[in-house]
């Protein structure tokens, strides 16, 4: 295969990764932006989403599309509920103190991981894609499902953007992010906004995971990579900046895809983490982050 088509393939693979990463990182960024909570368990919500997707789709026989669509709805809802319960039981009782919540979410990480290991086991299990005809390009065939993942992710990012900037709920979230105390003085139940945002953040990760399980199997340790990459994306893009998160996700996803194909995945990670270091030194607020107040 010539260099051109090879690059195209690598770019497509990178875009699939960027799509999933953008959703996951968006959830992390939202939670940090509004609540100032660094959610170390974010990757486990991703993993839980994938494992639940397998479980739900395994309950349904017949056309794999039915099981997948069911998983796409049910899995994020369950993950959102789990996040909501952990927020009420743990984070709220810690008064959202930054240090305490980091430690608490590390604990949450292990609890979720070990529970999944106990009840789901150490195997990696696939979910059958809802459709998987190959689109024939002049040089190679490409999975239509992967293209659908990119499209779905773009739609979800646009939907999140719409909610944040064009709806009352989004307005309340942005006001809370900017000044929680004053938001309270204008009737915003900050407490409930926090709970909702935490659940929403986890659900975004879960949706991303459901989209990816037909490509990458569900496994109880699969949460680590998305967590690390989400942190990288969020730091590069600027915490709390939606635009920055999306741009950084595309940047990291593409470079990871292309470098992995041409060189090695390890080199891709090395470059991404070095880039984080450079951003932290020269532009600590991130590429699109606003200066701290």
């Amino acid at each position: 295969m010539a260099f051109g088509p090879y690059l195209l393939l690598a770019t497509l693979e990178g875009l699939v990764m960027a799509a999933v990463l953008a959703l996951t990182a968006l959830g992390l960024s939202l939670v940090f932006g509004v609540m100032r909570v660094v959610n170390v368990a974010h990757g486990e919500f991703f993993m839980l989403g994938a494992v639940l997707a397998w479980w739900v789709s395994s309950l349904v026989s017949g056309n794999p599309a039915i099981g997948f669509l069911l998983a796409l709805i049910v899995s994020p809802l369950i993950v959102g509920a789990v996040a909501l319960v952990s927020e009420r039981l743990v984070l709220r009782r810690l008064d959202y103190k930054p240090e305490a919540t980091i430690v608490a979410t590390i604990g949450l990480l292990y609890i979720i991981q070990q529970l999944v290991l106990t009840f789901y086991g150490p195997e990696a299990r696939p979910v059958v894609a809802p459709f998987d005809f190959r689109i024939r390009l002049p040089w190679f065939g490409y999975s239509s499902y992967k293209l659908a993942v990119i499209a779905a992710s773009i739609l979800l990012v646009l939907a999140t953007w719409f909610v944040l900037t064009r709806t009352k709920i989004g307005l309340v979230m942005r006001a809370t992010q900017y000044d929680g105390e004053i938001a309270q003085a204008f009737g915003v139940p900050v407490d409930r906004v926090y709970a909702g945002v935490f659940a929403l953040g986890a659900m975004l990760a879960a949706v991303a995971a459901v989209l990816i399980v037909p490509i990458q199997q569900a496994h109880y340790l699969m949460g680590l990579d998305p967590l690390l990459l989400s942190f990288i994306v969020v730091i590069i893009g600027g915490l709390g900046s939606l635009r920055g998160t999306v741009v950084a996700a595309v940047l990291i996803g593409l470079s990871d895809g292309i470098i992995s194909v041409f060189f090695s995945p390890t080199l891709a990670k090395i470059i991404a983490t070095s880039f984080v270091a450079l951003v932290l030194v020269f532009r600590p607020q991130g590429l699109f982050g606003a200066e701290t107040r």
Binding site: L171, R174, A175, Y178, D179, I182, A183, A290
Partner: peptide
Amino acid sequence: RLFAELTVAE
């Protein structure tokens, strides 16, 4: 203590 990043209308 306005919500400085929001518009006047918001």
